[in-house]
Amino acid sequence: MKTTTDPDIALVEEIAHTSVADCYQCGKCSAGCPQGQKMDRLPSTLIRMVQYGDVVEASRSAAVWQCVSCLTCSARCPKSVDIAGVLDALKQISIRRKTVHANYQRTVAFQKAFLEILRRNGRTNELEMVVLYKTLGFFGDVSTNPLRSIPSALKDAHLGPAMLLKGKLHVKLGGPLKDKALVRRIFKKCEKKVES
C-alpha cells in the first residue's frame, strides 16, 4: 500500500496498514471520539498532520496517549481509514523518537510493564504488573512530573484491601506456562522486525 515517498508517512502506513491520503477531513472520527473533549489535537487533525508529513510533531501530542483504542473512529470512517491504527503507529513512533507527551509517561510505563510481565510469563500477572508499573511510573514522574510522583504512586491503593476481601487479588494466578522460552523467542523475533 505504497502511496508516498516520504519515509515518515510510509512508516505510519506500514505500521497501520492503511492509506492516510484517503482521508478527506470530514471530521466524523473527531466527532465520535470519546476522548475528543480532552485532546490537544483531534484525531482528524492528527491524520492531516500525517498527510503533510508532520509525523514527529503529531507524535508529541497528548492525544496520542489519551486515545483509549475503542475503534469508534475506524468503524465510522467513510473512507475506511484505520484511524485507530494510525494512532497506534504514532504511539510506537513516540516511543522510538522519545516524543511521548510529559503527562502521559505513566500510560507508556503501564503498557511497558504489561508487556514485560508478558515476556517473562506468557500471561499477565496483575499483582506483579501493578508493582512494576508503579515503580516504573514513579521514577518516570520524578524526572518529568515530580509533583505527581507520590500521589500517582498511591492512587488506587485503597482498592487493594477491598479486592483482597473479594478474593480478587491472587498472588498465584492460573497454571504456569510450560513453554516460557517460546514466548521470549516470539518477542525477540517481533522486536527484530520492528528494528529492521
Binding site: S69, K91, Q92, Q111, L115, L118, G122, C190, V194
Partner: peptide, 14 residues
C-alpha cells in the same frame, strides 16, 4: 498465551 491486549498493539503491532 496472552493476546497482548492494548499494550501489544500500542507498542509493537507485529
Amino acid at each position: 498465551i496472552c493476546c497482548g491486549a492494548t499494550a501489544a498493539h500500542s507498542i509493537n503491532r507485529k
